[in-house]
Design a protein around this nucleic acid. Structure first.
Length: 170
DNA sequence: AACACGATTTCG
DNA sequence: GAAATCGTGTTT
């Protein structure tokens, strides 16, 4: 069933990142329509977290992270890839969860390409959108917690925090 | 106005 | 191992 309760997204990013795997992202957008089970997530914990874009404060790019949980934070990187994140927490608390993988699609850049996600989805509200939302199918996969990827520049302790969650292969 | 670099992917 | 490729944040 669709997850329309705002409360689902108001927890901290680590909590939400642990709840997302097993749930489905549903897209209804013309040429890109489908259901994709989330398999891998990564949490970014606000201004304190040196790996989080919000560690540099509120800017034009990061302002959507300051919205209340349930909105999408979409950004472009390496000149070619869109990254999809789900904002979590209360308004003013810039946390988000990167969607690193969905069933049969590994890698955050490949996820957005498969789902047809681009900058037009930045700021979209998952609890009210007619083209993208979350659904709870009841699946509760066991997870493995690992360090986050490609954030060496953040230094310790952030580079070592086990805030990446991967569905165990079974 | 110029510069350095990135929450990645792909090719060699 | 290195290129591709450009928006963003920082510095000048």
């Amino acid at each position: 069933m669709p997850v329309t309760e705002r409360s689902f997204f108001l927890g901290d990013a680590v909590s939400v990142a642990r709840m997302l795997p097993g749930r489905d992202i549903v897209i209804r957008a013309g040429d890109h329509s489908g259901r994709y089970m989330i398999t891998e997530t990564e949490a970014y914990l606000g201004e304190e977290d040196r790996a989080c874009h919000a560690s540099r404060g509120r800017t034009r790019r990061t302002e959507v992270m300051y919205l209340e949980g349930g909105h999408l934070y979409i950004y472009f990187i390496y000149g070619m890839h869109w990254m999809m994140n789900i904002v979590t927490g209360k308004a003013g608390d810039p946390q988000a969860v990167l969607i690193r993988g969905v069933a049969s699609v590994s890698g955050p850049g490949r996820v957005t390409r498969a789902l047809g996600i681009d900058g037009s989805y930045n700021g979209e509200d998952l609890t009210t959108s007619a083209r993208i939302w979350l659904e709870d199918t009841g699946r509760r996969p066991s997870l493995r917690a690992l360090p986050r990827v490609a954030i060496d520049y953040a230094g310790e302790p952030w580079v070592s925090m086990p805030w990446r969650f991967v569905t165990e292969d079974k």
